[in-house]
Design a binder for these strands. Structure first.
Lengths: 149, 149
DNA sequence: CCTATTCGTAACTAATTAAGTTACATGAAA
DNA sequence: TTTCATGTAACTTAATTAGTTACGAATAGG
């Protein structure tokens, strides 16, 4: 798996879960979609469970399901639940006492805070249902997909 | 130096260059501002030279200067010249043939392209002159700074 | 209850990336 | 022609993230 692919991996997994409807999918099964192993999947989507986006059940027949209909799950929520900023440039002080650095950090933090608001607003317009719809369009056009859903 | 601090490092350096006015500053000197070494500085700002933001001269008395007045250098330009996206989430295909992944990637790329436009627009409103002004405000208030400028 | 299944998580290893360093060639000024 | 400064390749070190192993906890079904 490549770097910084957690958002895309999570959405891939969630869209498969949306397609699976009420059936729950095991970590093993989800892992096969993104070519990794079950532990990585659990780690990746643990935050989504805490955010009330997915729920997991243990034991035979257990696995993962969406906690809500895909229409009600926005990409903004998913992104936030993953717990990393979309704008990962650092604003950590490295030259304590330097007023130039202070000015730079203040400006970048102001920018980041405005920008994150904008990005969340934009991401809030997309839902998992949109993704599922687009997937089905592609399926109807091509008539085959690699994974069993 | 921490990760992903290239934007903040570059702005720190550039603001010192703005304050130095016409004097040119050596890589060694710039490096001391961000507590690293000259080679890292040259690497960091090489892209800025190619973008026409700074110019460098060799030999005795040489070093780095802004190519234009700080009023005319926006943070959008600086960010672009560093050559890395502000939104570094991956959209590389990892499951070729999976239509779900294709749908996810298409949506994320649409989002990224819109978002980058928005961010560039926001960053275009800040200039190096704004940074220098803020620095001077801080200096007037506190009356001391760590670096010799 | 006992067993099989599945998640939860800690601990370790491997791979990747970025920063830091060394070394040396190139060019300019006095 | 000597000294100073950048340009850059090559290498080393440090940090981060993914991947793996191992095992404990919970649950369904007989």
């Amino acid at each position: 798996m490549k770097r910084n692919s957690r958002l895309s991996s999570a959405l891939h997994i969630l869209t498969h879960m949306a397609e699976a409807d009420a059936r729950s999918l095991t970590s093993q099964h989800l892992a096969s979609f993104i070519h990794t192993n079950p532990v990585v999947v659990r780690r990746t989507i643990a935050g989504l469970r805490e955010a009330g986006i997915v729920s997991s059940t243990r034991g035979p027949g257990g696995g993962w399901q969406l906690s809500r209909p895909p229409e009600e799950i926005t990409l903004a929520e998913v992104s936030a639940a993953l717990g990393e900023s979309l704008l990962p440039f650092s604003t950590e002080p490295e030259s304590p006492g330097c007023l130039v650095e202070e000015a730079v950090i203040a400006m970048l933090e102001e920018f980041r805070s405005e920008a994150e608001r904008l990005l969340a607003e934009k991401l809030g317009r997309y839902t998992l249902a949109d993704l599922a719809t687009d997937y089905r369009k592609r399926f109807d056009r091509i008539g085959v997909t690699r994974h069993a859903v």
